[in-house]
Simulated assay, not measured.
Amino acid sequence: MPRLLIVHHTPSPACQALFEAVLDGAGDPELSEVEVVRRAALSATASDVLAADGIILGTPANIGYISGALKHFFDTVYYPVLDQAAGLPFGAYVHGNQGAEGAVRAIATITKGLGWEAVAETVVVHGEVDKGARERCWELGAAVGANLLS
Protein backbone atom coordinates (compact mmCIF):
# COMPACT_ATOMS: atom_id res chain seq x y z
CA MET A 1 0.00 0.00 0.00
CA PRO A 2 1.53 3.36 -1.01
CA ARG A 3 2.07 5.81 1.85
CA LEU A 4 1.41 9.54 1.59
CA LEU A 5 3.10 11.62 4.29
CA ILE A 6 1.67 15.04 5.12
CA VAL A 7 4.14 17.23 7.00
CA HIS A 8 2.46 20.37 8.24
CA HIS A 9 2.68 23.34 10.56
CA THR A 10 -0.81 24.49 11.49
CA PRO A 11 -0.57 27.35 14.00
CA SER A 12 -3.72 29.17 12.87
CA PRO A 13 -7.35 28.46 12.00
CA ALA A 14 -6.55 29.27 8.35
CA CYS A 15 -3.71 26.71 8.21
CA GLN A 16 -5.93 24.17 9.99
CA ALA A 17 -8.68 24.64 7.38
CA LEU A 18 -6.20 24.09 4.54
CA PHE A 19 -4.70 21.04 6.27
CA GLU A 20 -8.15 19.50 6.75
CA ALA A 21 -8.99 20.09 3.08
CA VAL A 22 -5.76 18.36 2.01
CA LEU A 23 -6.61 15.44 4.33
CA ASP A 24 -10.10 15.21 2.85
CA GLY A 25 -8.70 15.10 -0.69
CA ALA A 26 -6.06 12.51 0.17
CA GLY A 27 -8.71 10.48 1.99
CA ASP A 28 -11.13 10.39 -0.94
CA PRO A 29 -12.77 6.94 -1.18
CA GLU A 30 -11.24 6.46 -4.65
CA LEU A 31 -7.83 6.61 -2.96
CA SER A 32 -8.61 3.99 -0.33
CA GLU A 33 -5.46 2.09 -1.29
CA VAL A 34 -3.28 5.03 -0.17
CA GLU A 35 -2.26 5.14 3.48
CA VAL A 36 -2.26 8.75 4.69
CA VAL A 37 0.15 9.58 7.51
CA ARG A 38 0.25 13.02 9.05
CA ARG A 39 3.05 14.49 11.08
CA ALA A 40 3.52 17.90 12.62
CA ALA A 41 6.64 19.46 11.14
CA LEU A 42 8.40 19.52 14.51
CA SER A 43 7.91 15.78 15.01
CA ALA A 44 8.41 14.44 11.46
CA THR A 45 11.60 12.44 11.03
CA ALA A 46 13.87 11.13 8.32
CA SER A 47 12.36 7.69 8.96
CA ASP A 48 8.91 9.12 8.14
CA VAL A 49 10.23 10.47 4.83
CA LEU A 50 12.03 7.25 3.95
CA ALA A 51 8.87 5.23 4.62
CA ALA A 52 6.79 7.51 2.38
CA ASP A 53 6.03 7.10 -1.32
CA GLY A 54 4.92 10.74 -1.61
CA ILE A 55 4.74 13.84 0.56
CA ILE A 56 2.67 16.99 0.99
CA LEU A 57 4.19 19.96 2.80
CA GLY A 58 2.06 22.61 4.51
CA THR A 59 3.25 25.86 6.04
CA PRO A 60 2.29 29.42 6.83
CA ALA A 61 4.40 32.13 5.23
CA ASN A 62 6.04 33.84 8.19
CA ILE A 63 7.76 37.11 7.38
CA GLY A 64 7.88 35.98 3.76
CA TYR A 65 9.47 32.58 4.47
CA ILE A 66 8.47 29.05 5.46
CA SER A 67 7.68 28.53 9.12
CA GLY A 68 10.51 27.78 11.51
CA ALA A 69 8.87 24.40 12.11
CA LEU A 70 9.04 23.40 8.43
CA LYS A 71 12.60 24.76 8.22
CA HIS A 72 13.47 22.59 11.23
CA PHE A 73 11.95 19.59 9.45
CA PHE A 74 14.12 20.21 6.38
CA ASP A 75 17.22 20.81 8.53
CA THR A 76 16.59 17.53 10.37
CA VAL A 77 15.90 15.30 7.37
CA TYR A 78 17.97 16.85 4.58
CA TYR A 79 21.19 14.83 4.76
CA PRO A 80 19.71 11.60 6.15
CA VAL A 81 17.31 11.32 3.17
CA LEU A 82 19.33 13.08 0.49
CA ASP A 83 20.48 10.03 -1.45
CA GLN A 84 17.60 7.70 -0.60
CA ALA A 85 14.57 9.90 -1.30
CA ALA A 86 15.52 11.36 -4.68
CA GLY A 87 12.53 11.40 -7.01
CA LEU A 88 10.00 11.53 -4.15
CA PRO A 89 6.77 13.02 -5.55
CA PHE A 90 5.52 15.99 -3.55
CA GLY A 91 3.07 18.85 -3.38
CA ALA A 92 2.78 21.84 -1.06
CA TYR A 93 0.42 24.46 0.25
CA VAL A 94 1.26 27.84 1.79
CA HIS A 95 -0.94 30.29 3.66
CA GLY A 96 0.10 33.92 4.03
CA ASN A 97 -1.51 37.14 5.09
CA GLN A 98 1.03 39.03 3.03
CA GLY A 99 3.62 37.89 0.51
CA ALA A 100 4.20 34.14 0.26
CA GLU A 101 6.68 34.24 -2.62
CA GLY A 102 9.68 33.65 -0.36
CA ALA A 103 8.04 30.60 1.22
CA VAL A 104 7.17 29.14 -2.18
CA ARG A 105 10.70 29.80 -3.42
CA ALA A 106 12.22 28.17 -0.31
CA ILE A 107 10.15 25.02 -0.76
CA ALA A 108 11.11 24.86 -4.44
CA THR A 109 14.80 25.38 -3.71
CA ILE A 110 15.02 22.88 -0.85
CA THR A 111 13.03 20.16 -2.61
CA LYS A 112 15.11 20.64 -5.75
CA GLY A 113 18.22 20.13 -3.66
CA LEU A 114 16.68 16.94 -2.28
CA GLY A 115 15.83 15.78 -5.79
CA TRP A 116 12.10 15.59 -5.06
CA GLU A 117 9.65 15.87 -7.94
CA ALA A 118 6.70 18.29 -7.84
CA VAL A 119 3.59 16.47 -9.08
CA ALA A 120 1.18 19.34 -8.37
CA GLU A 121 1.39 23.09 -8.41
CA THR A 122 1.90 24.67 -4.98
CA VAL A 123 -1.35 26.02 -3.59
CA VAL A 124 -0.91 29.56 -2.25
CA VAL A 125 -3.69 31.13 -0.21
CA HIS A 126 -3.64 34.74 0.99
CA GLY A 127 -5.85 35.95 3.82
CA GLU A 128 -9.23 34.33 4.46
CA VAL A 129 -9.69 30.70 3.54
CA ASP A 130 -12.69 30.58 1.23
CA LYS A 131 -14.41 27.74 -0.60
CA GLY A 132 -12.05 28.07 -3.58
CA ALA A 133 -8.99 27.74 -1.35
CA ARG A 134 -10.45 24.66 0.32
CA GLU A 135 -11.21 23.13 -3.09
CA ARG A 136 -7.66 23.76 -4.34
CA CYS A 137 -6.24 22.09 -1.22
CA TRP A 138 -8.67 19.17 -1.59
CA GLU A 139 -7.46 18.78 -5.19
CA LEU A 140 -3.84 18.93 -4.02
CA GLY A 141 -4.40 16.08 -1.56
CA ALA A 142 -6.26 14.04 -4.16
CA ALA A 143 -3.72 14.71 -6.93
CA VAL A 144 -0.66 13.72 -4.90
CA GLY A 145 -2.51 10.67 -3.56
CA ALA A 146 -3.63 9.62 -7.05
CA ASN A 147 -0.07 10.02 -8.30
CA LEU A 148 0.97 7.24 -5.93
CA LEU A 149 -1.49 4.84 -7.57
CA SER A 150 -0.26 5.38 -11.13
Rank of each mutant, 00 (worst) to 15 (best):
A69G: 01
T109N: 08
T111D: 10
E101D: 15
T109F: 01
A92W: 02
A106M: 01
A85C: 09
G96C: 14
A118E: 10
V81E: 13
K71D: 01
F74L: 06
A69P: 00
G113H: 10
L88M: 15
T109Y: 01
S67D: 03
R105Q: 10
T76E: 15
I66H: 02
I107V: 12
A69N: 01
Q98R: 15
T109I: 03
K71N: 02
A100G: 13
V119A: 09
R105P: 00
H72Q: 09
T111Y: 10
V81W: 08
P89T: 05
Y79G: 05
A86E: 15
G87Y: 06
T76Q: 15
D83I: 03
G96Q: 13
P80S: 14
K112Y: 03
A86F: 12
L82H: 15
V77F: 05
A100P: 11
E121R: 09
V104F: 03
F73V: 02
T109M: 08
A108E: 14
A106W: 00
P80E: 09
A69W: 00
F90T: 07
G68Y: 00
A108S: 13
G113L: 08
E121Q: 11
L82E: 07
S67G: 08
T111N: 10
A103H: 04
H72I: 00
S67W: 01
Y79V: 06
T111M: 11
A118H: 04
G113Q: 09
S67C: 07
L70D: 02
A86P: 02
N97H: 06
F73I: 03
Y78P: 02
E117D: 08
E101C: 02
Q84N: 13
Y79Q: 14
F90L: 10
G68F: 00
G87P: 05
Q84C: 07
L82V: 06
K71Y: 00
H72L: 07
V77R: 07
G99K: 05
D75H: 05
P80Q: 12
F90V: 05
A92I: 02
K112F: 01
R105K: 13
A106E: 03
P80H: 12
G115D: 11
A118D: 02
V77H: 07
G115S: 11
I110F: 03
I110P: 05
H95S: 06
T76S: 15
D83H: 14
E117K: 15
G102A: 10
A100I: 05
V77L: 06
E101Q: 14
H95K: 05
Y93G: 04
L88Q: 14
